[in-house]
Write a protein that binds this DNA or RNA. Structure first.
Lengths: 348, 348
DNA sequence: AGCCGTTCTGCAATCGATTGCAACGTAGTG
DNA sequence: CACTACGTTGCAATCGATTGCAGAACGGCT
């Protein structure tokens, strides 16, 4: 405790040091040496290194990241961007976004990256993606959902490598995507309900976004193939919680004939639906079956617990990060389409 | 379309420009002028300004943020940090965190700030706050929850201005906090149940964190004052979803006597409790009343809908940001303790 | 023409850390 | 003693944008 400050003035308490040069002055070495010492470079003498590190600790010194990143031309920051393309009122606090974001953040933090959160509204800002990609602020970009911006994303992906997107994979697309087979998922959901003997179904969800459109197509295909007078109506339900609830209420009372089962585009929609049905005195699953999509953690916490089509979000997030890392290092990465999984609980 | 490139070589397509100097070369002006033109400084001729901006667009040029931020000594980035002090297994995807984070992100993005997400684990990294604060990466810090790190936060707050924390306010504390009157909230919850004639209550929540401890104290006070044989047991339930569910199951079967009402430390705990009770064949609220805390959006989506103590998260987030802005501009800001509000729905 | 004032542009220093290269000191060897 | 080799350290250029200050260009006025 008494052996580490032999140079500075006696009365100096613990003056805050703001840059390497100052610390170098105190340590009696050059700035370059301090930089190397703090970076644990092997070429600096072990004793000086320790001395400098101790001094840095004592004076509460941290290297200025801005300067460091500028010089090294890498930032250690990954942007997670959420495009609010269609449905601009969808809040960033959407439970699916937040769940995926949480897992991504954990994954990235563990690898020493910082996470920068970006909300993008394409209608208001034409080159939204460019802004993030070319800001010089990030080493890579993870995108949650394609919204209706498929072409814009393709455009950027052609010249910008470190980009991985959660969403659909179309044959021959340029950007690397990780996601679930939405068509199959939609089909599985509908088939499950049909298999339970239900014939009059409704799909709840706005099909402007690619992913949900595919889910709808899957459900349609299942119903068409099934035949036997099965039919599928469609109500576009928006994703913002505020709109959703009312729209579902309206939908439930305005639909044609007696609906037996609802295929919901997301767990959030499914939960809101169950709520509204409860309100209307319709019991789930006795009077109407409801099946969700996503299998968010909260699907297990609803009453009744949600039967849903599971996307493996945790593993998907890990795969996104893995692919991004590969791309940052100059490598390449293929798309990943994960199989959906039917999780049978109590709502259908 | 044909009037903006009269200097460069004829065959040059749209070469990517990487820095101001290059663009200056193309435009035939100096770097300084380009910088000023792109920043819309009034002192540059309107015609040159437009020409330069057009050129920048055409070549897909964006100023390097790292360099800009270094020079200007401000970053335009706010860190949102989540201390996982006690209860390290609590996931960053905790619904309360995520909800508050979502609103904060919206609020900050609107003001032109970027949001940097930081998960901090004090046990593993002693100077966790210092790392963020002194990295030179952010203009300010918003913290979600105090966890058990009150003293560490105080320490930093004494010398670091732009810091605002969601959490409790103790008399004379140095850091600026925004939060709810947790003691009063806990008291209101218990009083409400007592008022319904329930006498045997349990508080579900781990009191290591300050906020929850205060809620518990409030509930205790209410029960003590009420007298008449009312009593309050306590089960520490952790905040991570995985642990929570099992612990609640155990709690419900191991408690002393016939419990009539549960005061939960959070909505997440309340929902998990309702689930477990449902499993055990205990009807809510008929057999047992359950009251939550927070009033997260999902409180309205549970079945039965949650009766809960509302924290005004949206307004709280706005206030946090407002105070942070004031501090960044060198001003000062007082703490805010918001009154909790009893929201009566169906679970109690 | 000469002078002043205004408006615009260029020059060069600056932010703070990093790193290739040169130079230093010391020890070891012939 | 001279010379090489190695291990350290210092020097100075560099990353890219910003900005105070000086100076150029131009118009207007006497």
């Amino acid at each position: 405790m008494a052996d580490d400050s032999d140079i500075s003035a006696p009365e100096a308490p613990v003056r805050r040091v703001r840059n390497i040069a100052e610390l170098a002055g105190i340590a009696g070495v050059s700035a370059g040496t301090v930089s190397r010492a703090l970076a644990d470079k092997p070429m600096v003498n072990a004793r000086t290194r320790d001395r400098i590190q101790a001094l840095a600790r004592k004076h509460g010194f941290q290297v200025n990241q801005m300067a460091s990143k500028l010089r090294r031309q890498k930032t250690g920051v990954i942007a997670v961007v959420i495009p609010l393309g269609h449905d601009r009122r969808q809040h960033i606090s959407d439970p699916f976004f937040m769940t995926l974001l949480g897992v991504l953040a954990d994954e990235l933090t563990e690898r020493g990256y910082d996470v920068m959160l970006s909300r993008a509204i394409p209608q208001e800002d034409a080159n939204w993606l460019d802004r993030v990609v070319n800001s010089g602020m990030v080493d890579g970009v993870l995108m949650i959902g394609q919204s209706d911006q498929f072409d814009a994303i393709e455009e950027v992906a052609r010249s910008y490598k470190p980009l991985v997107v959660w969403g659909s994979n179309r044959a021959g697309q340029a950007h690397c995507s990780v996601g679930t087979d939405n068509f199959l998922g939609g089909r599985m959901a509908a088939e499950y309900l049909l298999g339970k003997g239900l014939r009059s179904l409704v799909f709840l969800g706005d099909t402007t976004g690619i992913e949900i459109d595919e889910r709808y197509s899957g459900a349609q295909a299942a119903v068409a193939e099934f035949g036997q007078g099965a039919r599928l109506q469609h109500m576009p339900i928006h994703l913002s919680i505020e709109e959703m609830t009312d729209e579902i209420g309206v939908a439930m009372t305005s639909l044609d004939g007696n609906i037996e089962g609802a295929v919901c585009a997301s767990d959030a929609i499914a939960m809101a639906t169950i709520r509204q049905l409860h309100e209307l005195g319709v019991a789930v699953p006795a009077d109407m079956a409801v099946i969700g999509f996503d299998d968010l953690p909260l699907a297990r916490h609803s009453v009744p617990q949600l039967t849903t089509i599971r996307q493996n979000i945790a593993s998907g997030a890990a795969q996104m990060v893995k692919r991004l890392m590969a791309k940052i290092e100059g490598g390449d990465a293929d798309a990943l389409v994960m199989p959906p999984e039917l999780v049978i609980r109590d709502s259908a």
